[in-house]
Design a protein around this nucleic acid. Structure first.
Lengths: 152, 152
DNA sequence: ATTACTGCAAACTATTTGCAGCCTC
DNA sequence: GAGGCTGCAAATAGTTTGCAGTAAT
């Protein structure tokens, strides 16, 4: 945990930014809720518990900053809200998501499944891939069990 | 063109909705601008040329309706705007997109590249896939040529 | 007449921005 | 004391909703 904060601090310094108390608290909340896909409002409320004076705008500004530094990714699952997802250490690619249309759960897939697909895209479309976003919509393991029936 | 309007009309009727003049004009605009990834505002302006009395809310309502009927998909490319993309006839899956970070162009890929990936996800995560969204971010063919240099 | 549908305006939500004050060097 | 950073409040942007009127059966 502390090690990751240090790394993020370095990333900020490299870009001439400071790790202010507000930013540190925000980063801690993100680390403590990794893979929760928090919205800005979610982050704001959790940050407020630890640092009540903070303003929502500061949280937005911090999230935007961390996004620019590639510390986190801004994701959009279709509801009108942006969610923020820390990049794993050393991850070059955005991880994938499985979204359950019944319970709304979001599962993460760390493995890079797209190596072959990217080769095809690079070759056939002459497109240099920098990053990707892959989301599957469907029914998760738990909901499949609960529902029993295969389909409506 | 007329054939596709007929099909959409049928889809509406099956769900007990009518193809009103406003809805028809909206659908025509979508058909004429297929693969343009129009926003609601874009659609609204183009519809207004043909049907000046229409209101923005009607366009939104029509787009939402067509989305529910799976006639079109609502896409989000990261800017705060929803864009609307007609499904190709008989397409079971959402098509993929290549977004150029230089010129902002969006290229579509119709081929389903994910068959193998989906098999893995279904097996390893016990997740029943209904649909997917795949977007690549990178540099398109044209911009690669223009820039000349391989990287910054 | 009933019911779906429309246009307008107001409401709402998420996010951004302007600005005065604050902190740190 | 200069500049980055913050908190607040106001502004903006995209989208949704309430409602009275319209259209079609």
């Amino acid at each position: 945990m502390e090690k990751r904060i240090e790394r993020i601090k370095e990333a900020l310094h490299e870009a001439r930014y400071k790790l202010t108390p507000q930013r540190e608290v925000t980063v801690r909340v993100l680390l403590e809720n990794e893979s929760s896909h928090l919205s800005a409002e979610d982050v704001f409320m959790k940050v407020k518990d630890k640092y009540p004076e903070i303003g929502l705008a500061t949280v937005y500004r911090t999230l935007e900053l961390l996004n620019e530094l590639n510390v986190l990714d801004k994701v959009n699952f279709g509801d009108g809200v942006s969610r923020y997802d820390l990049r794993k250490e050393g991850a070059q690619h955005f991880h994938h998501h499985l979204i359950c249309i019944h319970c709304g759960s979001v599962e993460e897939i760390e493995e890079d499944l797209l190596t072959d697909v990217e080769k095809i895209v690079t070759r056939d479309f002459e497109f240099d891939i920098i990053d990707h976003r892959l989301t599957f919509h469907g029914v998760c393991k738990l909901c499949k069990g609960k529902e029993g029936n295969t389909d409506a």
